[in-house]
Nucleic acid binder design. Structure first.
Lengths: 295, 295
DNA sequence: TTGTCCATGTTCAGAATTGTACAGCGGGCT
DNA sequence: AGCCCGCTGTACAATTCTGAACATGGACAA
């Protein structure tokens, strides 16, 4: 077959994963892409390769016939991959990832695990709010809440962070009516950071009263909240794993933060940058329940 | 390597062909595409795969290392191709190709050869000037001189036909000055077909005098010219192979006809249509000297 | 029964890729 | 020496592909 070999890679992933979504995750593409690519392949081959059952895709007998050869292609491709690692010294090196503190903390929490996968790659995780360092190559990758309209930047959506109210287990909260909660002491951002998630919500919730303990980053807020200084709106991924905190009520629907992975177009093809991107994307996919407050 | 397998197919073609142009022809893509795809692969792998000598591309030792595995991928892909032929009944069937008479004659001349390559595919070559039959599915493929701006039609340039003055070997042409030639009898299109190639050139060449023998298609003109009825402007691919004709002077620079292969977007993916397209494209590439009057 | 979660299908805007056309260079032939 | 042909590189317009977003449906748990 002298047509596109890459559609066979998609075919194999769907045969193994059984669903468009699972295949898409394994391939690092979107589920509509998997669907379209398989449809194109079926049209080119002139045979249906999958039966669509209610809950999964199953290879037809035609599809089964092609699996062995496609797996042979995969073996050869993997051999090329391993040989490539030996050919190049760009698979090692340093990748700098910049994220806002709470997200940086999340990444840092999994850094040992990421390193076990990324082997020769060292990466630095730094806290930063600005974009300047992507253009000036002070960071290779950024995680941000909006996509800047800058030339040469490409964005990939990682997911959405959820927020909820948390209290220290040591802080007695007898009544959880809004009025009762509003009357308690709170931890929050200072006036220079009112745009941070949950702060405008909190001001409205408390009828305009500012938090009694104020800081300028999530880690400060987290520390204050967990030691009983007051209630706080915190990102779920930060607070739910903390045994000293407990959630008060559910996820706040109006408070969330999208997370976008930003990279300069030219860097994306570098193997070490690509590897870190893939690892970060996989991490956000796997930890999606935690990020969305559903763990 | 879980990246695009298809870049390896391009890599292999260039390793074998040695030039971007040769690889492009083998792959059915353009030479800038081959260049870009190899550059992307080199960037992803992080190693140079080819040395660029003055007259050819030669694999580096890194490139050599990847060749065996890439050939293994190709073997598996070819096995898939063969199995696909067995799976599908759409590789056989009929493909209708419509072209203007002279081009239809060209295709017909090679039809036995084309059939030997296309095996289970039967194709019909019909003479037609119109587009209606592509939209009404009266033809699957068209060869035309312009690309219509119609929804859903995609075009691929086949090449350019050259034209020259021809005389029958039996027709004495003692002097070849423009004046002497203009004074001789000529074969040409009738007044309804003055837009055909070479006709407005001929009118100007003869100071407005119409051809003495007039017809409404190339085959009529060809037949009249070859039997000595008069001089004619004919497409080189039609006249050069005819032993009864000889060229008078060179290719006429101002007289040419681009040939575009037109197909409906949806049909292009069908294996039998794709196969005929590829065969026609290859035919025009191989016969380019004949078409351009350089054989 | 209702709500939540996961999956697929569809649409559209944006990004990526491709082919055409052209320029320039080198080699070979006349 | 000049011309022609083949090749590569580049620019730009057109085409193709992709992902985000949203709607819908089904399954499962409370």
């Amino acid at each position: 077959m002298d047509k596109n070999w890459d559609d066979l890679r998609i075919f194999l992933a769907l045969a193994r994963g059984g669903t468009l979504t699972t295949a898409a995750k394994a391939l690092g593409v979107s589920h509509p892409t998997v669907s379209r690519r398989v449809q194109v392949l079926e049209k080119q081959i002139g045979a249906r390769l999958f039966d669509r059952l209610p809950d999964r895709f199953v290879p037809t007998s035609a599809g089964e016939e092609l699996l062995a050869d496609t797996e042979a292609m995969e073996k050869a491709a993997q051999s090329i991959h391993r040989r490539s690692a030996g050919l190049s010294d760009t698979v090692s090196g340093t990748v700098r990832l910049s994220a806002e503190e709470a997200t940086a903390a999340l990444i840092a929490r999994y850094s040992a695990e990421l390193r076990s996968k990324l082997q020769q790659i060292e990466f630095e995780v730094v806290s930063s709010h600005t974009l300047a360092n992507l253009s000036r190559r002070e960071a290779d990758l950024l995680i941000r809440e909006q996509v800047p309209e800058l030339h040469g930047i490409v964005a990939r959506k990682l997911g959405r962070l959820a927020y909820a109210i948390y209290a220290a287990r040591s802080l007695p909260v007898k009544k959880t009516t809004p009025a009762a909660l509003a009357a308690l002491p709170w931890v929050g951002f200072d006036d220079d950071h009112l745009r941070m998630q949950g702060q405008s919500w909190l001001l409205e919730f408390r009828g305009g009263r500012r938090p009694e303990i104020r800081g300028n980053n999530w880690l400060v807020l987290h520390e204050a909240a967990r030691t009983g200084a007051g209630l706080a709106v915190l990102p779920c991924h930060l607070a739910d794993p903390d045994p000293m905190l407990r959630r008060v009520g559910g996820v706040i629907p109006d408070v969330f933060a999208d997370q976008w992975l930003l990279v300069h177009r030219d860097l994306r093809a570098l193997p070490r940058v690509r590897a870190v991107m893939d690892a970060v994307i996989a991490l956000f996919q796997r930890e999606r329940p935690l990020l969305e407050g559903r763990s």
